[in-house]
Write a protein that binds this DNA or RNA. Structure first.
Lengths: 178, 178
DNA sequence: AGGCTCATGTAAATAGTTACATGATTTT
DNA sequence: AAAATCATGTAACTATTTACATGAGCCT
């Protein structure tokens, strides 16, 4: 049950509309969570009905009109509760290593070029994250919150770097084997 | 749609019953995919109805009796097709970094001990995977299939090592900040 | 017979994805 | 006024998790 809490966090950092949230999920929050706008709107509705957030002043509440949300005290409490609730790590879930393993059984076929494609994608993401770090923390973090946000970003960087290095090795080994 | 393909791969590597599959998903396959026995039985049913696998001889097909499956040619073809189908990488999805980010907003509270707990869990998994490597490939991989299986295992090792190093850093920074 | 483990399954709830619908605002 | 873009939403489907049910076989 992480999506509502991801939204609460994002809204506490900065009150936003649904689409803005969706965009932030493609950037900063997105290092370790993603969500489509459909999911976000549905969840915003639930959170609002549960009195954890509320829509700001709302001139005329119609479809197609921007609607901004902020977190209510109950929402903040729920987030505090969640931060302190232990939860075991889940196994990673990624189809690519699985496909590689399948290739071990049915033959490698076109998979090497797919591995290269993925390496390039991860490499771009890595560069992007590194650029974020240079841009947002040129002199290191300024306070506790920034220190933590940067830690999470560094995690994203490590993960992407890990992919690049693993994929590079896999490609080498598979090519050498031919 | 990776679960059916994970099952096809596992069954091609070695025909098995549902529970055996569930156990193998906790080990070798499990570096990058996991599945509960409930999911597995349901999926085995679907694959059987779709003529991609079949139950072996089956003495008396009742509940509570072991039922072993093997892959049919159509299943192998489906797996070949899947291996060659491009699919973009999904963003990682992990609640822990998210919780850390939430802690940046509502306060760190008890999270540091949770980070330590996770580091220990990832460390055990790391040791376990390293032991697998020593046990299964003492003289390196013997053939193409083993080479690939080992590559996937090395990926799992990298991921776990990445977690341990990131968590260690996060714990240090958060403690130093107090 | 009672309890334990192995093994297969069903049901319901929750989460996530894909496809589509519709109104509001801005640009050409 | 048409087209593009911004913004919010619904519906249907697929996947995953959690809780429960039930039978078989073995051990005491």
């Amino acid at each position: 049950m992480s999506l509502p809490h991801a939204i609460l966090t994002a809204l506490l950092e900065k009150p936003s509309s649904g689409l803005e949230l969706a965009r932030r999920f493609d950037r900063s929050i997105g290092y370790f969570w993603s969500a489509s706008h459909q999911q976000i709107y549905r969840e915003l509705g639930k959170l609002e009905r549960g009195k954890l957030i509320r829509a700001l002043p709302a001139e005329v509440p119609t479809r197609g009109r921007r609607k901004e949300y902020e977190v209510l005290p109950a929402g903040r409490e729920e987030l505090e509760r969640w931060v302190d609730t232990p939860e075991d790590p889940k196994t990673a879930r990624d189809p690519l290593p699985l496909r590689l393993r399948a290739a071990g059984v049915v033959g490698v076929r076109g998979l090497v070029s797919e591995l290269r494609r993925h390496r390039d994608l991860h490499l771009s993401r890595l560069e992007e994250y590194r650029a974020f770090e240079r841009r947002d923390y040129p002199d290191g973090p300024k306070n506790e919150r920034e220190r933590i946000q940067r830690l999470v970003l560094l995690g994203g960087i490590d993960v992407e770097a890990g992919w690049v290095s693993w994929l590079t090795r896999a490609i080498e080994e598979l090519e050498e084997a031919r």
